[in-house]
Each structure stands twice: as C-alpha cells, then as structure tokens.
Nucleic acid binder design. Structure first.
Length: 276
DNA sequence: CCGGCCACCTGCGGGC
DNA sequence: TGCCCGCAGGTGGCCG
C-alpha cells in the first residue's frame, strides 16, 4: 500500500496524535500480539522489552517507521496493506494483529489484512545496520540523492528505468504509483533502458522524483483503495495522478490514450505520446 | 553480481 | 447466488 509519502504522513500523524515531542511521549504498559505471523513472526521475546518504555520519537527511513524507545527501536514496515491507528477502547477489528497499550489508556494498533508487513526490534545503535535497513539507498528528499549518483549507479546495469527507480538499493521510497507518475512527468517511457539515459536525463528524473514526493506528502498521500492516515482520513493526491490507474483514459496533456503494461508483474501506466 | 520470477496473504469486483 | 479469475501503494530469496 504505502510508498514514501504515505509512510511519512502516517509518521507525522502518529507524532501528532500521540503527542510525542522533545523525546517525551506515552509509555507502553502492555503489548498484545493477537497474530504473530506477519511477513516474519513478530519477535515475542525482544518486543516484551518495550514494556515500561516511553515512545521518545517516531521517524521514517525509506518506507519503514522507526519508533524510538531510547535504547531500543521498534521498526515497522506496512507491506501492501498495513496501517496504524489509535483507539480509546478495546473495539478491535479483524486483522488487528498487534497492540501497544499506552499509559494514557489508549491503544496503538497495527492492522494488516494481507500480513506482508513487518514488526521488529533492535538496539537503537544497531538499527541502521539491521538486515532490513542496511542495503537501502539514499533518501530522495536528502542531498545524498542527485542525478550524478543515479547516472553513475546505472552505467553497468541492463534493466529498465522503472525497475531501477523502484529498487530500494538505488533510491528509497519510490513504489509502483510514484514510479509511473515520475516517469510521466520526466517524459521517459518506463521500459527505457537505464544505460541509454544521459546525465541530464538523470538530473531531470531526480528532480521530478523529489517534486512529486514532496507534493504527495503535502496532500497526505494517495488513497486508491484502503490507505488511510493515522487519523483515519484519506490522502488527497489521487486527483493529481496523471497516469496511474488511468488506463484507457485521455492524457491530460496531449489527450492521447493512457496505456497499461505489466513490468515485473506490476501494472505500469504511461502516455505513448508524452513519454519517449 | 545481476535480472527475472516466486512466494508470502486477504479481499474485492467482474464475468459467467 | 456462487465460483473462478485477475487484481491490489512491497520485498526477500532463489535460480540460472
């Protein structure tokens, strides 16, 4: 479900609703694993260490949420269908798999119908070298990402540009929706081989990725089906989509018909007229 | 090392 | 109504 803008929105929403500020936040009084089997099982032993600890901060790295408990950090990936919400009661729903009971009486609940998500715990000093984070490329909204970097990284590769920008080893946060959208904005066909793109093209694409992710964050993400913010509200970026989920509809720029094809088993949308 | 494919799950909508 | 199919914001692992 969520790409960088959605995860960032959920992160901001949780900070707001939980009232986490200046390393102060609610304390976990109890943990309830209702169903351990996510992508990997929730580590029962390690996770119990969080009881009595305070949520000091929450941040995002790539599409992961990092809950900072001081010495320990809980990491959460939402997979395709994960979400977090805060409730004042015990009215759990189907697919509520994990609950952090807070000292203010509220429950912080992880919900995930498809269970492709992930919950894990590491010592805070080791979390960036954990198996989930150690291979990740640069953050697209940081200065670490620039056109030259992707140009250099792509010189020896034989793959198409859509797969390349969705590979989290090259740049993090771009998923199936924003890959199609960024390539449309940059006038590049998703099937284009990365080796055939010159430095200027990479600089343009990098800038477009940055812009689109920033705009999507400002609009609180894209809700097509089931993505919601921590508050339960939808994201508003759907109205800004030029190609994704618009197969057969007219391009808003050239009025030609939007095409759909399957790349690496993922639906891919593009305009054959606007994208070369 | 790289590219391509699979598996992991549940739910929904459309066609018959 | 019910069944079957294809489809869904992701990614680690395996194979050639």
């Amino acid at each position: 479900m969520p790409e960088l803008p959605e995860v960032e929105t959920i992160c901001q929403g949780l900070l707001n609703e939980l009232g986490v500020c200046e390393t102060d936040g609610p304390t976990v009084t109890k943990l309830v694993i209702r169903k351990a089997q996510l992508r990997v099982p929730i580590p029962k032993r390690k996770i119990q260490d969080l009881v009595g600890c305070k949520i000091r901060n929450i941040h995002r790295r790539a599409k992961y949420l990092l809950f900072d408990f001081g010495d320990q950090t809980m990491l959460s990936h939402l997979g395709m269908s994960g979400s977090w919400r805060i409730i004042n009661d015990d009215r759990f729903r189907k697919h509520d798999h994990f609950v952090l009971v807070l000292n203010d009486g509220r429950n912080l609940v992880y919900h995930d119908p498809r269970r492709f998500g992930l919950i894990d715990v590491f010592e805070t000093s080791k979390v960036s070298q954990s198996k989930w984070l150690q291979h990740l490329g640069p953050e697209p909204l940081s200065k670490e990402l620039n056109g030259k970097y992707l140009f250099d990284k792509s010189r020896t590769r034989k793959i198409n540009v859509k797969n390349f920008i969705m590979d989290q080893k090259n740049v993090v946060g771009v998923g199936n929706i924003y890959a199609s959208e960024a390539l449309f904005m940059a006038h590049i066909r998703p099937h284009k081989k990365v080796k055939s793109m010159n430095l200027q093209k990479w600089e343009e694409l990098t800038e477009v990725i940055r812009k689109i992710l920033q705009k999507a964050i400002a609009m609180k993400g894209t809700t097509l089906r089931d993505y919601v913010q921590a508050s339960g509200e939808k994201g508003e970026f759907k109205n800004q989509l030029f190609v994704y989920d618009r197969y057969g509809l007219p391009c808003q720029i050239c009025h030609g018909m939007i095409k759909r094809s399957v790349i690496n088993a993922r639906s891919t949308y593009w305009c054959p007229n606007c994208q070369i």
